[in-house]
């Protein structure tokens, strides 16, 4: 409640001191790095499960950005968004594992590059 009363002054300013020296920039940097790592991992790794985990990393990078922005703007929208993102990510995880199992049953491998019949 206290925070809300001073919201107008904080809205576009730096992070409150309770958060240490970290500013919005730091959080965004972490989020961007996570997103980038996820992307790089997705591109370079061949194991389907690892690849899926990389997409999860990218989802959570967005989650971090959302929470940081939520804190920055002093509203709860971003945090609400993250809850939904987590839900969707969970659904995707279930789907991904089911799919990976299905594929493993067919070819006994988790290598993404073993699936390349469709091309051209």
């Amino acid at each position: 409640m206290n925070l809300l009363s001073i919201a107008p002054t904080l809205a576009q300013g730096p992070m409150p001191t309770e958060m240490g020296g970290a500013t919005l920039f730091h959080y965004l940097l972490v989020s961007a790095i996570m997103f980038g790592l996820g992307l790089i991992g997705f591109v370079t790794r061949r194991n389907l499960i690892i690849m899926f985990l990389c997409t999860e990393l990218m989802f959570q990078a967005a989650g971090i950005a959302l929470i940081a922005f939520s804190r920055f703007h002093l509203n709860h929208t971003g945090e609400t968004f993250v809850i939904f993102v987590l839900t969707v990510a969970a659904a995707e995880a279930a789907l991904a594992l089911a799919l990976v199992v299905l594929l493993f049953r067919r070819k006994e491998t988790l290598d993404a590059s073993s699936w390349q019949d469709l091309k051209g």
């Binding site: 997705f42 591109v43 690849m51 993404a112 590059s113 390349q116 019949d117 051209g120």
Partner: peptide
Amino acid sequence: RGVLNGYALSMA
């Protein structure tokens, strides 16, 4: 070329 990672790389 039909490789998943290749597509991902191109997309990225």
